[in-house]
Design a protein around this nucleic acid. Structure first.
Length: 847
RNA sequence: GCGGACGUGGCGGAAUGGUAGACGCCGGGGACUUAAAAUCCCCUGAUCCUUGAUCGUGCGGGUUCGAGUCCCGCCGUCCGCACCA
């Protein structure tokens, strides 16, 4: 292909592909495990191969790419890999809808998307590419799963699970949102099934404690994980049922309020409620009512506290003559704590609502300021600090003291123990799907559940499968599940569940760093690369993926396979790419009809439809979505403007953690800048003479600032600096300094606009690839200005500025300031009380 | 309800407690051109009595010589979690 560049225009349609091929041929982005250089592992969250790269991917991968390319130029051995999170439901949906095989569909998508990523010029080490759907990946995952099983971190149990009736599979708690499946949106049902679990709760405390070491993670993500783990400490206590030997166990974080108890409440699913209901139709009805209740935020907000008096009583643990009624209540959750609570209405809002409704006693046991009366007025529970009152021997203690003492007393007397509860549940990983990692176990009638011997791994998915019937294709496959028991040799059946795809993404960053064929990874090689220095991805993975990956890392450390606890040293969550919407109201039904950006002619403040030239309404700038038709296709943009323009757009203007509004005008501006740089690079003159100290200074200041900005991921600021240097060079006259500045500018933009940079690098006569060129050294002396502009204030208001030599003594600055006409006019004859002088900054005259 | 983030021109956004609005976009004016595109130059927070001045970073206070920045109290927007005992 020949270049179609002109002195005025850079032609990406020929240059982009040429340089992409050159990088491939030089293999310049391959990471060397044995390099002696310092290392840097830059990772972006790998994509699901849906078929098309969307603009959010482009933003994510451009940021990582700039970082990786900069680090490489700065002398680091950089690992910057890419792969595919390739198992999951959409492939099976495609199989059902279009009759294609999930494997074929997925691999085609991967090929398409890989080509798209190459067209964007990302500096990726493709030799380390992994796809989780390939046996060389999921087979190693099976090996790790068996290791965790041996260590007791995998178990199987019969449990009520979240069943998605549309996808016909089990969902983890994390995948149920407002009672609906996260993917299908179907109302989730409870079913009893034998399921595989990973013991994430064993690491609850570690995962919580570990958050405090992650000081390069966003506060927001750490808080979200902390809330998700949901640690609370308190007392588990038994309330003895009157006239029986049985009791009801409750968990409370407020044992200090025990003297304020006025009832016990158990969940509708509590075993005691079920046994009582056997002979009580009214209670059966009540339990059914509780289950019908909605689970959305709005419904819970307004839901009335309902209770059913069982007629049973329990003894108060501190006074066996004090009896409390037992209710079944709709606000008690079976799957938290013990499924039973004691109600202390004065100091818990729900309990107060309940007590007022059912006219139960409300007794104050924590003083609210001076108010220590036993009778509690009003309908707002007091949950603040205070001293214990109306609590016998505990009176006068603080809440914390009372908690400690009553826990000690309960343990001593045998009716309670200190307990820590977590909201976090063990991770159910069984999925009744085909397109996932087969769980490597065999069910034998004689030997029970038997792990597949490691030498028989991988347990491969069968190729020919029927997708036309709902349910698990592996379960009804005619032959696949039938095997001999590895222990006794008798006929047995395979486990037909596959692993949640979040398991696949919980260790892929390890496989990138090391991928031997005979084991999941090499421990010593991992030690060279991990933890990931910079991880970049969307905030939507703040809990699930990032918590699971942390858990796997800790679990693998726990069983001695790796030597570090946290996988991602620094995490960055980037904002979304948004776009305005274009719509017209449909006269017939009043609903807006949306138009895609390609159908629109966009003016300065208005927009019209290309088809009829009539105006359309410009709507809010919102997240790109198919239903609002406000999506833009990266391929079209690359074809029109080239990869460098879209990359530059992704870095410009908005800070990377915030949303980036896409606009036609914006991408055109970026494209104009590409050509502007090209023209400027064309002015490089190796034979120029003379120097330009001011330009030299600007050049080195820009290099230092851009390096800092990129290291801080403040790409928008680096971009602004580059614009400034560009303008400064354009305004300068030819000199050695000017040519040096042009060469510097080229190196500065190389990580961001690599194709343009390579083309210009060759054009100015440099040999070799700029991708492999060394970053810029700066002269520290040049970073310091020798002249400074001083602000002169009177009473804090700017009145004048003066430009003076840097480092001028205070007295001289003061004299210069007072000599200013403007200052004298502002003083208007008033006496000067004092003068504040900040050297090289400002003078403030106080009158 | 709990937790977090944010609030600066027409827009995206800059600003170690020290000249608010860098840089980009939009808009306006001009140069070049037969013309257009491209390119280049200038202007672009508001108001006024326009050589200058006053006001101005969601609102109200405070600390300070000096506050977009720090403190207190509100208001608003967005996000996450939630009958979690």
């Amino acid at each position: 292909m020949t270049s179609a560049n002109t002195p005025d225009r850079f032609d990406p349609s020929s240059a982009d592909a040429r340089w992409q091929a050159a990088w491939d041929q030089a293999q310049c982005f391959r990471a060397d495990d044995n390099s002696a250089k310092p290392r840097s592992y830059v990772l972006e969250m790998f994509p699901y191969p849906s078929g098309r790269i969307h603009i959010g991917h482009v933003r994510n991968y451009t940021m990582g790419d700039v970082l990786a390319r900069t680090k490489r130029m700065q002398g680091f051995e950089v690992l910057h890999p890419m792969g595919w999170d390739a198992f999951g439901m959409p492939a099976e949906n495609a199989a059902m809808e279009k009759g294609v095989h999930p494997g074929g569909w997925t691999r085609d998508n991967i090929a398409n998307m890989k080509a798209q990523l190459k067209r964007l010029g990302f500096a990726l080490d493709w030799s380390r590419e992994v796809a989780t759907c390939e046996p060389d990946y999921y087979g190693q995952e099976q090996a790790l799963f068996l290791d965790l099983y041996e260590a007791g971190l995998v178990y199987r149990k019969e449990s009520a699970v979240n069943w998605d009736p549309v996808d016909m599979t089990v969902l983890a708690n994390e995948q149920v949102i407002d009672g609906r499946g996260w993917r299908s949106g179907a109302l989730v049902e409870k079913r009893k099934l034998s399921q595989w679990f990973l013991k994430i709760t064993q690491f609850a405390d570690e995962l919580l404690e570990g958050l405090s070491s992650l000081d390069k993670w966003p506060e927001k993500v750490r808080t979200m994980q902390e809330n998700w783990i949901g640690k609370s400490q308190g007392l588990r206590a038994t309330f003895k049922l009157v006239d029986t030997d049985n009791g009801i166990e409750v968990f409370t974080t407020r044992p200090d309020t025990l003297y304020g108890a006025s009832f016990l409440a158990i969940a509708a699913d509590h075993p005691l409620a079920h046994s009582l209901a056997a002979n009580a139709p009214e209670l059966q009805d009540f339990i059914a009512t509780c289950k019908r209740g909605g689970t959305t935020a709005a419904e819970l907000e307004t839901a009335e506290k309902l209770g059913f008096n069982t007629g049973l009583s329990v003894e108060h643990p501190l006074d066996s003559h004090w009896h409390l009624p037992v209710y079944v209540a709709n606000f008690v959750l079976m799957d938290y704590g013990t499924g039973a609570v004691f109600g202390c209405p004065a100091h818990d809002q729900r309990d107060l609502d309940f007590a007022r409704k059912y006219e139960l006693p409300v007794r104050r046991v924590v003083a609210d300021g001076d108010n220590d009366g036993e009778t509690f007025e009003g309908n707002e529970a007091y949950t603040g600090p205070g001293r214990l009152v109306n609590s016998g021997w505990m009176n006068g203690l603080t809440i914390e003291e009372a908690k400690a003492q009553i826990i000690a007393k309960s343990a001593h007397e045998g009716w309670g123990t200190a307990e820590t509860q977590y909201r976090l549940r063990d991770w159910g990983v069984s999925r009744q799907r085909y397109w996932g990692t087969p769980i490597p176990f065999i069910h034998c009638e004689l030997c029970g559940v038997v792990p597949v011997p490691k030498k028989q791994l991988p347990v491969m998915l069968p190729e020919y499968v029927d997708f036309q019937t709902p349910g698990n294709p592996l379960l009804r496959h005619p032959t696949w599940k039938h095997v001999d028991c590895p222990k006794c040799g008798k006929p047995a059946v395979r486990e037909t569940d596959t692993l949640d795809t979040f398991v696949d993404s919980s260790w892929y960053f390890l496989r990138f760093a090391s991928q031997p064929s005979d084991k999941p990874f090499d421990r010593d090689v991992l030690a060279k690369w991990l933890p990931v220095e910079q991880y970049i991805g969307g905030i939507e993975h703040a809990i699930l993926h990032l918590l699971y990956a942390r858990f796997w890392t800790r679990a693998l450390q726990h069983i001695g396979l790796i030597d570090f606890a946290e996988p991602f040293a620094s995490l960055f969550t980037q904002g979304m790419v948004t776009h305005e919407t274009y719509s017209r109201v449909d006269g017939s039904n009043g609903q807006p009809i949306y138009f895609s950006p390609d159908e629109i002619e966009r003016g300065g403040e208005s927009a019209s439809l290309k088809a009829d030239g009539a105006p359309v309404e410009i709507g809010r700038v919102i997240k790109m979505s198919k239903s609002k038709k406000n999506v833009v296709d990266p391929d079209n943009i690359i074809a029109t403007y080239g990869a460098d323009a879209i990359r530059w757009f992704m870095l410009s203007d908005s800070p990377p953690e915030r949303d980036l509004p896409w606009s036609e005008a914006g991408i055109e501006g970026c494209s104009r800048f590409v050509h502007r740089l090209w023209r400027l690079f064309g002015q490089f003159d190796a034979a120029a003479s003379g120097d330009d100290k001011a330009l030299d200074r600007k050049r080195d200041q820009t290099v230092a600032a851009v390096a800092d900005d990129i290291a801080a991921l403040s790409f928008n600021k680096a971009v602004a600096r580059i614009y400034e240097l560009t303008s400064a060079i354009e305004k300068s006259s030819p000199s050695v300094s000017r040519s040096a500045a042009i060469r510097t500018l080229l190196l500065l933009v190389a990580p961001m606009m690599p194709h343009l940079a390579e083309e210009a690098w060759a054009a100015i006569g440099e040999t070799g690839l700029i991708a492999q060129a060394a970053w810029l050294a700066v002269d520290p002396a040049l970073l310091v200005e020798d002249e400074v502009t001083i602000a002169i204030q009177v009473l804090g208001k700017l009145r004048d500025t003066i430009t003076v030599a840097k480092g001028l003594p205070k007295e001289e600055l003061e004299a210069l300031a007072l000599a200013s006409d403007k200052v004298q006019r502002a003083l208007d004859g008033k006496a000067v009380k004092k003068v504040i002088v900040v050297p090289d900054r400002l003078v403030n005259v106080v009158a």
